[in-house]
Design a protein around this nucleic acid. Sequence first.
RNA 1: GGGGUUGUAGGGUAGCCUGGUCCAUCCUAUGGCGUUCGGGACGCCGUGACCUGAGUUCAAAUCUCAGCAACCCCA
Length: 484
Amino acid sequence: MVTLMQVKSEEKKASLPQKSNFSEWYNEILLTGEIMDVRYPVKGLYVWFPFGFDVRKRTYAIMRELLDRDHKEALFPLLIPETEFMKEAEHIKGFENEVYWVTHGGTSELDIKLALRPTSETAIYPMYRVWVRSHADLPIKIYQIVNTFRYETKHTRPLIRLREITSFKEAHTVHCTWDEAAEQVKEAVHIYQEFYRRLAIPTIVSKRPDWDKFPGADYTMAVDTLMPDGKTLQIGTAHHLGTNFAKTFDIKYEDLNGEQQYAHQTCYGISERSIAALISVHGDDKGLVLPPEVAPVQVVIIPVLFGKSEEITEACRSVALRLKTKGLRVELDESDERPGAKYYKWEMKGTPLRLEIGPRDLKNNAVTVVRRDTGSRETVPFDSIEYEVENKFGDITRNLFEKAERSLNERITRCGTLEEVKHAISEGIAGIPWCKERECGLAMEEAVGAGILGIPEGELGLGSGICPVCKKETLSMAIMAKTY
RNA sequence: GGGGUUGUAGGGUAGCCUGGUCCAUCCUAUGGCGUUCGGGACGCCGUGACCUGAGUUCAAAUCUCAGCAACCCCA
């Protein structure tokens, strides 16, 4: 009898593979956690479930909140004429193998093919040419949240490597000087760090090596995080475009002296990879774990009924109403299931707090509160439930961030040799001295079979050592990792 | 870029090698009714599938080819 029970419970648990088997866990949780339906019959295209879309909506609301401080949201067309798309040589080289083309209108062939935007520089900058007249028009800071298309030839993966990126937030700014644009790149990185801090996701910022920058940029700053399987995920980039695009798209302003000057530009983007990170960094063997700010349901109330239990139902409804009045997203689960089944269900969905109200609680004039992030269970007075819940939200986000940060730091290894790097990158990120020379960097990548993310900002990028290739002394530390 | 494996109810699987036993197995899910309810309840009655196309054959879930899709490994 006991063994039968054990077998049965193992079968149930097997509905979500363990997180230690990250690849399977990831694929499965998207479906079971109702984030995305991966069964759409076109490679690299996936469907947002309503629940997942809700998480997305709340995540992007944070993004909008941060950008709306001094950006304007706009919307540019999906289709870009070939004539505009083909203007910037570097840019074309970077994207030409990934572009979807619209070649026909109905049955007639188009005179000028139309590209489905893989990113929107070439859609936006012809308009910037028209909009920018004088230094008084600058800076311009515009963003849009759109879908983009890239014909990925590598293995596609939901939320991570897509043929349709459904949630591309791209900002495009125009400035008078190179330095102002550089300042904007810094500002963009700060915004992204704040964004990820709100999602309780720790990040590493680094300047990408020259061979890995955005096609057409002077340089690229990138925000990475570490996934459970030890690979890094690039979850945000900011590019200094210099005057490269201004020259090809003829974006000029009249300066204080009445002279025509090329404008300096930046662009920076974040995609639904942010959601991939959110799910992967916090989730566990039981399912999603969501920070309260983005959880579609923040509090679930489970009545524990015995016999005729109208009092319990009453108490649950009253608590639900009180919490809703406080503006919280509350769900009272009155479905006809046993409490245990409901616990599993809401844990899978990452609901930050679960309240249980049963006869015992009623007798003690109390509510049982269970945290999703720690599993801790405590009893709090019925009358102070609002206070207790709101208080715990802060604790949960803080705990999620600290836990994730600890886990990230534990998997960063400072190395002295490429052999050590090889070993370190099977677990996470390796730090290694690097002279910053291109040939040495490429040799290092070749030798260990992983990428150089760049020289990270902060302490991580400092330290003296010897470049493993040219053996010169250097003060900069690069980080290397297997990447998505 | 190269190689491999796979495609059967909403999900996971058995059957395929050796064509006919299969209007297809088991678990789960799901609809109805009743009894239940402090960590995945139980009973009864129901629902639901052979990826697409072509070929071989008296006969195809099973064999062949192509397409689409998924997964894994290497670079």
